[in-house]
Design a protein around this nucleic acid. Structure first.
Length: 357
DNA sequence: AACACGGGGAG
DNA sequence: CTCCCAGTGTT
């Protein structure tokens, strides 16, 4: 499908089915459009409407906004969230009054330089309110174009984003930029939605490559999960002649909070130090096979360190009592197997191995 | 619980 | 410049 056909169909669809009665679509000027675009960032139309109307009543012009206190502005933002948007709005209003004599700038560079306005929002303001031909590329448009071109990359990736900006520019019509900008955002918000898109009634489905391949749900590509960091830990397994194991209660907050676990140390040296100072000065330690435990946000490579039964230990040395922050005790194998204490999965695994050992 | 989001800010 | 996050709604 050629760009001409794309925008013609989209505009025709917008004429018939698009929304033309939103508050910011009346009495269009850069100030009103700007406020609406900021409020519409990460906030839905139905939520924005009452806030927009109240805001416009209180601050009808950029001069009114600039003259207000930040407190007054933020009071109008209460409930919208993302208060940085409100603070940036206020700062930008004062900049516009001071540097541009209250006239909203009408070049891309100048508009992007205002706090809280990036390339896409600038494009929306300039095309809708300033009669300038600029593309936009917000989340809705990324989704529409990602599907239309069956883009096999995450749209947040720099190369993919640059490519999408080119397509967005190419598809922007030589006239009616304002309607086109509204139209493509509307399509993304109401038809080409993240889930359950209404392809059956979509004006551009005939040219949509994802639709043609029956793979609409595959696009846009998802953000690749960043690989989790890998951390190292030693778990010190101390066993008495009767088979009981030394466990310590973990701090309430943090990983495995409140569970009972083998002492966790960062280095081999720390293991030796701990055993010698707290338990028995002449015990020898044996490294077991390292294994990986994976949390939601990182991998933990665990090296179990075992002190052999023959060399065992009686009680922790007197030094132990001085260490108030630790609560440890000897626990029988049976209690552990009966799950009398909450213990982390990797510790459970090690206890089972000990049984077979 | 994971994902999505536009711009700011850190590196 | 590139990458990651803050803060909130949606799925």
């Amino acid at each position: 499908m050629q760009p001409e056909q794309f925008y013609q169909r989209l505009l025709a669809w917008f004429d018939d089915y698009g929304r033309h009665d939103l508050p910011w679509q009346q009495d269009i000027n850069p100030y009103r459009v700007w406020i609406s675009e900021i409020m519409l960032q990460q906030t839905q139309v139905t939520t924005v409407i009452p806030y927009y109307q109240k805001f416009m009543q209180s601050f009808p012009t950029v001069q009114d906004l600039a003259a207000a206190t930040q407190e007054q502005v933020l009071a109008h933002w209460a409930g919208l969230g993302y208060y940085a948007r409100g603070r940036n709005l206020h700062k930008a209003a004062q900049l516009i009054v001071e540097q541009y004599d209250g006239e909203f700038p009408d070049t891309l560079d100048e508009v992007v330089a205002l706090p809280g306005i990036g390339r896409s929002t600038a494009g929306a303001i300039l095309s809708i309110a300033c009669g300038k031909r600029h593309p936009i590329l917000d989340g809705n448009v990324k989704r529409v174009l990602g599907r239309f071109y069956a883009l096999e990359k995450w749209p947040g990736e720099k190369a993919a984003e640059n490519w999408l900006w080119e397509r967005a520019a190419q598809l922007t019509p030589p006239q009616r930029y304002a309607d086109y900008t509204q139209a493509i955002m509307d399509l993304g918000a109401t038809f080409c939605t993240r889930s359950k898109p209404q392809c059956a009634d979509c004006p551009i489905s005939a040219g949509c490559q994802a639709f043609a391949q029956d793979r609409v749900a595959d696009f846009p590509f998802k953000k690749p999960k960043k690989d989790k960091p890998v951390r190292q830990a030693y778990l010190l397994i101390l066993q008495q002649a009767d088979g009981s194991l030394w466990l310590e209660e973990r701090p309430q907050k943090g990983i495995w909070g409140g569970l009972w676990s083998f002492p966790q140390l960062e280095t081999w040296q720390a293991c030796e130090d701990k055993v010698q100072s707290r338990f028995s000065p002449s015990v020898s330690l044996l490294k077991w096979q390292e294994f990986r435990h994976t949390f939601s946000h990182y991998h933990l490579d665990i090296t179990p360190v075992f002190s052999q039964q023959s060399q065992l230990i009686a009680e922790p040395s007197a030094n132990y009592a001085a260490d108030e922050n630790e609560s440890g005790r000897w626990v029988s194998m049976q209690d552990l197997l009966d799950e009398k204490l909450g213990i982390p999965a990797p510790v459970q695994k090690l206890v089972k191995q000990l049984q077979d050992y």
